[in-house]
Computed example of a mutant assay.
Amino acid sequence: MQKKRRRRILARVGWSVLVVVLLVIGGTIAWSQIGVSEAEAEPLAAVRANPDVTITDDAAGIVLSPAGGSSDIGLVFIPGAKVDPWAYAATLQDLAAEDDITVVITKPWLNLAFFDLRPLDAFTSLVPDIDLWMAGGHSLGGVRACQLATDADALVLFASYCATDLSDTDLPVLSIAGSEDGLSTPEEIADARHLLPEDAELVEIEGASHSSFGAYGPQAGDGTPTISDEDMIAQLAELVGAFADEVDSSG
């Protein structure tokens, strides 16, 4: 009798644990789909109409390529948490159009980069002819990019910082902050500076907020941007383009 009773108790405990696990998994999946910041329609339509950019939509990511030309440098860009990957196409379009940099905007599992365990080559394989690859990302996407950076030739952080210690590497790093960012503030980015290589370059864009790095509208807790979308796009292209040229020439 005692053995049967013990088995019944263990069975009930097992079923209870299973129900809790299923509820946690289901709740996480549901949460990941709620409140996703969608790409703004007008900027996305503009990049799709840009004759200097070729867009390829793949299950793993969105590829922005220079139209009618080849590219030797690529950027794997990881979106911020619960932000539509298409929201970054307009912001990053000038990298392809003006700097001949192919951009792969990843499509993270469950809209969260931390749940996406794919290696860097899952995205670089979309454009196999690229010679030099930079890993990068916005906000929490940048934190994930830091984890993949040792498989890349360089790292670019967009309103983000590393939780991974890269200070002992010789990885070229460009970290771009926004003066009006209320979520990844310039102070927070500076506080994590010790996790980057000594020669990492930190740049602050005057007037940029957290959401200035994508075209998905305002974000709770963020500052108010004072920079226009056009200026933001141009400054990002100038900074990342010049950095890519430096990495390419030094390699």
Rank of each mutant, 00 (worst) to 15 (best):
T150E: 15
Y88V: 03
I101Y: 12
I130L: 11
K4H: 08
G141C: 08
L132G: 00
G80D: 12
A200S: 14
E98N: 15
G214K: 07
L95P: 15
E246K: 13
A39N: 02
D231K: 13
D153E: 14
S37L: 12
A46T: 11
L23F: 08
W109G: 04
A159F: 03
D131V: 00
T226K: 00
E204Y: 03
P79K: 07
A45R: 10
R193W: 00
D94S: 15
D248A: 13
S160F: 10
G221K: 02
E201W: 07
S212L: 02
R6N: 06
A152D: 11
D100W: 03
E204Q: 12
E201C: 01
D165I: 03
A208T: 02
Q33L: 10
Q33P: 01
S125G: 12
I34G: 02
L64P: 13
D129C: 00
G136Y: 04
T169L: 07
W15Q: 03
T169G: 04
V104W: 03
A152R: 08
I105P: 09
T164W: 06
S212K: 00
A159W: 00
V76K: 13
V104Q: 00
G61A: 06
V17P: 02
P108S: 14
F213Q: 06
W133H: 07
I227K: 06
T164N: 09
D248W: 08
G80N: 10
G136P: 09
F158H: 15
R8L: 14
F243G: 08
A208D: 07
G217A: 05
L112Q: 11
V103M: 09
D231H: 10
A192K: 13
T102M: 10
F115I: 07
A163K: 10
D57I: 07
L183T: 00
Q2Y: 07
A244P: 06
V19F: 10
S184R: 05
I25Q: 01
D58L: 12
P108Y: 11
S175Q: 00
P172I: 08
S71I: 08
S179H: 03
A60T: 08
I73D: 08
L92D: 05
I55K: 11
A163W: 08
A159S: 15
I205T: 06
A60W: 07
S16I: 02
V21S: 01
S167D: 08
D151N: 12
E238Q: 14
D84I: 11
E188R: 12
Q219L: 01
G14I: 03
D229Q: 14
I78G: 12
G182I: 01
A67N: 05
G137P: 14
S175T: 08
V53S: 09
A11E: 03
D52C: 05
A200P: 07
Y216D: 07
M232A: 10
P108R: 10
D229R: 15
I9G: 00
E206W: 01
L92G: 10
G182P: 04
P186R: 01
M134Q: 00
L120A: 12
D100Y: 02
L155H: 05
R193G: 02
G142V: 09
D248T: 05
A163Y: 13
G80E: 07
G223W: 01
V63M: 09
S70K: 10
I105E: 12
M1S: 14
S139P: 09
D121F: 06
K82L: 05
